[in-house]
């Protein structure tokens, strides 16, 4: 049972971070970050390079050790709950030359559904194929992963997360190095997930698309700068505080405009 002293928002949230701190080299790279992911939201984590965004995700998933802080999944400590979380790592963190087919990679998402003596079942294979259909990669199931383009690799990773049928999917820069068509396809899948009531949390680097893609943001630079619904938190003031002097006033003004026009070519607009 979740602790009775916890707030309602924390118990309802698929991922609540409280005071999460991670250090490297005697120095905090993530310092005392609080963030309660609203259930059913699409949230972005935003900040400059080296702001500790990926580290925060890894600490939230229990991959990296925390110096302090609590991570709760629906109010329970992270260590007791893992079925609710799916993770899509950065594409560049993988050796894509690994001898595996697309279907094998997606099958890795079914790890917890199989005991060691089982060799897979028709039902599970169908689940894997369904996720591939959802990301539009069903025709590539037997392809070696090294033969895919960057965008296709990212879709395969997404399919692997889909097959886990998790309440919360955590993505580390899903749009890094992918083409516009893939970006549009991925965002479509993510939005359909949200419409099913699932929660998404993304490290995102393209400030121009934040308003369009996400409903909540966490702005951070080692510490949390601001968090909340995009309209409230994604402000000029907060961006300035997050990025320091690295954004020009013109850039800032464009970014926080509710409907940016012609800011970036190639992205699909609704």
């Amino acid at each position: 049972m979740p602790d009775s002293r916890l707030g309602k928002a924390v118990i309802a949230s698929p991922l609540a971070l409280q005071g999460v701190t991670v250090s490297y080299d005697h120095r905090p790279v993530v310092h005392s970050v609080d963030f309660v992911t609203p259930p059913g939201s699409m949230s972005a984590i935003i900040g400059p390079n080296g702001a500790g965004k990926s580290t925060l995700l890894k600490a939230a998933l229990g991959i990296t050790r925390r110096l302090s802080g609590e991570v709760r999944v629906f109010g329970r400590p992270l260590e007791q709950e893992t079925r609710h979380l799916a993770f899509v790592p950065q594409r560049s963190s993988i050796d894509w030359d690994f001898p595996a087919r697309v279907i094998d990679v997606v099958g890795m998402g079914l790890y917890r559904d199989l005991r060691w003596w089982q060799f897979g079942s028709r039902k599970l294979r169908r689940r894997a194929m369904e996720s591939l259909v959802r990301v539009g990669m069903e025709g590539f199931a037997e392809r070696q992963i090294g033969q895919l383009s960057g965008g296709q690799q990212q879709r395969v990773f997404l399919a692997r997360a889909l097959v886990q049928e998790a309440d919360l999917t955590i993505l580390d820069e899903p749009f890094a190095g992918v083409d516009a068509a893939t970006e549009a396809a991925i965002i479509q899948v993510l939005k359909s997930l949200r419409d099913e009531g699932r929660t998404l949390l993304c490290v995102h680097h393209d400030l121009a698309t934040v308003r369009e893609y996400f409903d909540h943001v966490l702005l951070m630079n080692v510490r949390r700068v601001a968090a909340g619904p995009v309209d409230e938190a994604f402000t000029e003031d907060n961006l300035q505080a997050t990025y320091g002097g690295r954004l020009s006033p013109v850039q800032l003004a464009r970014l926080v405009e509710p409907t940016p026009a012609g800011w970036q070519e190639g992205t699909e607009r609704r």
């Binding site: 050796d95 894509w96 030359d97 690994f98 070696q144 992963i145 090294g146 033969q147 895919l148 383009s149 960057g150 965008g151 690799q153 190095g177 992918v178 083409d179 893939t182």
Partner: peptide, 8 residues
């Protein structure tokens, strides 16, 4: 090598 450095 196949998987190395394939970007769109």
């Amino acid at each position: 090598r196949t998987g190395a450095a394939q970007h769109d």
